[in-house]
Design a protein around this nucleic acid. Structure first.
Lengths: 194, 194
DNA sequence: CTTGAACGATAACATATGTTATCAAGTTTT
DNA sequence: AAAACTTGATAACATATGTTATCGTTCAAG
């Protein structure tokens, strides 16, 4: 979480560097499960290369809630703090190179950070931004049609559409693979009209 | 936000009491718009009596995202901190008695609180809990069928089903009023089988 | 008391979306 | 190179859900 905000809060760089040595580098193949639904998150994950997804399971077929790419970090922060079982699973989509920081060090880092002068303000801003992010995802999900959401993806995050297999996209949009195909062919027809 | 945590952090009571005088009591009829989509949230709202809903508009018909009742407080916290336009609207469902604390005082209160010894820890916990809450709402929305969500409501928040007109429930579940009726009649048939 | 909203049920029909099956092309494994 | 798997498109059919319209009830405003 905190590492996302290095640009914004340069004071954090020192901490980041200090905990670098405790990160474990790991190369993992595609479809490696990194966190299973129901387990407690045990580490912070930073992606050097590759791509992951967060998803949840429903009667065998799963729903993707978020994609992650190079230079992004992730952790179920609320699972750390509340020590609750994770409601989502995390796995690699492509073969990936990851850096993992065990929970122990994350908590230790937070403890150190909490003595930084403006830590409270930072936390406020961070959580406000994260909330805004989730809120927007949620709003888009309940307000927009799958077709609109797909066009949004194309426009705002073309990287996802290019790199990620279609069935993950479908599960992210909340439709079946068949229906996503229909959406694509419909859009293609629309465009060819000139 | 912070007032939700009085039991958990009794140190907050003093602040709460201190800012009581700045709250404006207000009696409003049903269907009063308190915050319009696109505007910036200007106050913290505490409900003494009545019931509100947060919703967002989509081509004329709206989608309810949350209900609020007596003794609950609400504010678009991220709108305060980020100073961004709200993505949701808030209105009363029943005639209500509210206490409003203007944004100015909320920020002032946060400023004071940030000098509390464990403020950072409190913020961490609060935001972790809120995130968990939104996450669960989101997960339930994408994982469960409308029928399951309705049964969940019945079980976990019967108050909502009893007090809130059905079309708001329908818009909360993400279905039309007609379909909610169908769900109810189907469940009723199921139950009468003895 | 009467009138008109607001609320909720239901039917009939239209549309959106899921499911299953099949085919084809591309990749990986053996 | 052959086999197995992954990915994606498409058709046919089934189901879920939306839309519109109608009706009865309740409840508040005149």
């Amino acid at each position: 979480m905190f590492f996302h905000f290095r640009q914004k809060f340069p004071q954090l760089n020192a901490y980041w560097d200090k905990y670098l040595p405790f990160q474990k580098r790991q190369e993992v193949p595609a479809k490696t499960l990194l966190l299973a639904e129901g387990r407690r998150s045990q580490q912070y994950i930073f992606i050097e290369k590759g791509c992951l997804r967060a998803f949840l399971n429903k009667d065998g077929n799963d729903k993707t809630v978020q994609f992650f790419f190079e230079q992004e970090g992730l952790a179920s922060f609320e699972s750390f703090v509340n020590n609750t079982p994770s409601v989502i699973s995390i796995e690699t989509i492509e073969p990936s190179i990851l850096y993992m920081l065990p929970k122990k060090y994350v908590l230790q880092l937070v403890e150190e950070l909490s003595r930084e002068p403006n830590f409270a303000q930072m936390v406020l801003q961070m959580s406000a931004q994260r909330q805004a992010h989730y809120m927007n995802e949620f709003v888009s999900f309940i307000r927009d049609t799958p077709e609109q959401r797909y066009q949004n993806l194309l426009k705002k995050k073309p990287k996802i559409v290019q790199r990620v297999p279609q069935h993950y996209i479908a599960s992210y949009l909340g439709v079946s693979t068949v229906h996503l195909s229909r959406i694509k062919s419909k859009l293609a027809k629309g465009k060819s009209h000139f």
